[in-house]
């Protein structure tokens, strides 16, 4: 009896930026000539200071922003060609301000995408329970409202909500930025453990070099809308590039 060959394990590109520029109405360029690709299962960290274009780059992926020039491709298809609703439901999105719905209970927040995808109620409930366990939230928190949670708990809900419909891609915009150092550290390590299991394609925005080094499989440094370099953490800390060196020094 022959067993069918498994899928070839070649790194496949999930997200690609092709010479992308993004201008705001005043004509100022927030992103200029960005070319970058993200491989399946990796955590690409976009590192840079405020205003360097990290968040905008993230929004170009789920089409909350449309490129002025160039092309962003997700799973091989341009975001301009995607049905924007389908595209966004293929991508989990976690933002710093969390953006939990204050009028929804925790369970309803987490079950949001499954619900708008019209899953049966029973399956939604099971999935919400599973996710709360995954992100270490006690089941009784399900009935609470976001304002009754701590910052760390809220951020966990944000992550669970983004994972709800099991999207292959996860965009995280400084998800741990507003947390105290201890909670942040906890969540960073939980993220690593989670990512080891789930193998999502993650684009993670931060301005914190330590976080980038800890979480990233590759680090893309951005400065004034331009990509400076993309390096694995080990090479990043050794780089002689003046911008990278400045970053390393600031975090010594």
């Amino acid at each position: 009896m022959t067993t069918p060959a498994g899928p070839a394990v070649i790194p496949s590109t999930v997200i690609e930026f092709h010479d992308v520029s993004y201008q705001v109405q005043s004509g100022r360029e927030l992103i200029s000539h960005l070319s970058l690709s993200v491989q399946a299962g990796e955590t690409l960290v976009l590192l840079g200071r405020s205003g360097s274009g990290k968040t905008t780059s993230l929004k170009l992926i789920n089409h909350l922003a449309a490129p002025s020039k160039g092309d962003v491709r997700v799973q091989g298809r341009s975001t301009q060609e995607w049905d924007v609703i389908r595209l966004r439901r293929t991508i989990g999105y976690v933002i710093q301000e969390v953006g939990l719905f204050p009028h929804f209970s925790v369970a309803r927040n987490i079950g949001l995408v499954p619900r708008i995808e019209a899953w049966p109620e029973e399956k939604i409930r099971a999935r919400v329970g599973e996710l709360m366990q995954l992100v270490s939230l006690a089941p009784e928190l399900g009935e609470r409202y976001p304002r009754e949670l701590s910052g760390g708990q809220r951020q966990r809900v944000g992550v669970a909500r983004a994972l709800a419909a099991d999207p292959p891609i996860l965009l995280m915009d400084e998800p741990f930025g507003a947390l105290d150092p201890i909670t942040r550290n906890e969540l960073q390590h939980e993220f690593l453990a989670l990512q080891k299991r789930l193998q999502k394609t993650v684009v993670f925005v931060t301005h914190d070099l330590r976080e980038a080094l800890l979480l990233g499989t590759r680090i893309a440094l951005m400065e004034e809308g331009k990509l400076v370099a993309v390096l694995p953490p080990g090479e990043f800390v050794k780089s002689n590039d003046p911008l990278i060196a400045a970053y390393n020094e600031a975090f010594q």
Partner: peptide, 18 residues
């Protein structure tokens, strides 16, 4: 309404009506 909440809603793939 908090813009972060609306953006999260759009980002998660809710239609304008939703």
């Amino acid at each position: 309404v908090d813009p972060a909440v609306v953006e999260a809603a759009r980002g998660m793939g809710m239609t304008e009506n939703q």
